[in-house]
Nucleic acid binder design. Sequence first.
DNA 1: CCCCCCCC
Length: 600
Amino acid sequence: MSHQNLLTKDAIARILEGEKVINPRVQVLGYKKVMGDGSDKGQVRYRFLLSDGKSSHQFCVMMGQLIERIEMGEFERFSVIQLNEYILNSLQDRKVMIILEPQLIKRGSDIGQRIGNPSAPTTPNSAGANTSFNASVPRLSAPPMASTSVPRAGRSAPVPTPSYLSDVNQVVCGIADLNPYRNRWAVKGRVSAKTPIKQWSNAKGEGKLFSFDITDDTGEIRITAFKTECEKFFDVVEVGKVFTISKAVIKPANKKFSPLNNDYELTLGNDSIVIPGDDDDSDCPKMSFNFVKIKDIAATNADSFVDVLAVCKSVGELVTFTQKNTGRELKKRDISLVDDTEMEIKLTLWGEEAERQIANEGSAVVVKKAKVSDFNGKSLTTTQNSFVQIDPTMSEAFGLRGWYERSRDTLRPKPLSVTTSSYENAQWRNLSEINLAAVRNERGALTFSTVATVIQVGKLSIYLACPTAGCKKKVTDMNNGYYKCDKCNKNFEDYEPRLILGLAISDFGGELWITLFHEDAEKILGIKAKELIQMRDANATEYEEIIGALNFRRFTFRLRSAEDRYKEEVRVRTTALAINEIPTGDYQKKLLELVNSLSL
DNA sequence: CCCCCCCC
């Protein structure tokens, strides 16, 4: 009885040649416990000699949770196992199979012999290495070479370079080939983005970090440096330059937070090495762009990323505001971009890039990975993954600047981003025409005028706002006589009550819920917010009457309907920009009487 | 160990 049919034909040879053999069955001819000695110092693993009956391979590793099963004897000598998942790892010219999901097919004691006549394992780079598996075997990891500290060339006296910037003997592999089972590796890539230093503080502690992304010809990966490493490497890493990274920790990337095309991320640790490389290195492609014309962004989905090359047409003010959820203060600056499709789009820059006002009117602007947003039409924003370049030295940029210089005086670009003040040419619409499709047809925000009747009064919210002129931010009652504004970061003894009123309005064909902010709410109610509050507290009936008196009054509304995303749901949100009452004589009164008689 | 990518 040969048992040969238990084994997958030529499995070992095919796997070693790079073929992805599905669930191969192989025989265990022996194994040996080994300890890691590099960055994985002390980590236990087992090295197996596996055979397909014809060839065998001695660099087959199991580790982690499999150790217990091995030590229980599950994969004893002569067992036939099926490799439900494995990784082939090429380190230098040694091929290491990492067995992730072995499944016992037949117990070794049931077979009791070697199947077939496998040739001796090949040991390609091991001069003097043993062919006998039971003798002492070479370490799985390449022996550490002498660490060299090479000072960088300098004009003045040589400055010793810290070892973490010079010492590397790892074999460089492609970024796409990185996985957590490699034990000695280095990657070399060009920095495509770099974040500012971020301080954090939460329940688990506090610290600072920065991260950067590197790209080579196989892929891209994010690298994060915390605390000490943040200080150590922040000034070393520069966008556009090439670095070799080794001895960093590989961990799964949370795809929720990274649009990078990689399942893993790297974290720099105490012994991580970051070495500046040759910036002309051909393994690391210069930053490449896939430019999308502004015109084509109109048809690009929100939340996708695009590369743009455009000219800055105008620069907005620096705006500081407080993020509602976190109370964090944010700084932004919008600039407007145009290109030769004669379309214009808003680009929002954040933080340091906003403060520094990096672009001026007429600057060529290149953004790698700008994020598309669809609030109020289409707009662009930078994110942590973006890389912005002003007046880059690329011929396309010179060409576009030339186009802008020639056409700036006659240029009337069509805006893709709707600004809040551009409703002068509002159209007249019937309410039956107002829906998501119509709003989208107007690139996200439809401004229109309509004549309609109030048919229902919704929620009237009165909130306490900051008394600072123009702030409008909700204040927190500190219950000590003071009210705190997070935006102004001040306590005030006073506050300004502000109103938000929801109304359902109807014309002959449709109806729509709209929101009136403070000024228009005061106007339509015919009462100032402060008096309204007094009335509410003193005389509830009168208060109800004031609100109820809105029913069946007619107005000319100037409205803006915009696409709005609320808890994953996309809907139309309409706000009043202006209202003007149309007198209806006693018509409204009669309707109110009718409704009151019906409800009795 | 961050994990928010913002606001209207």
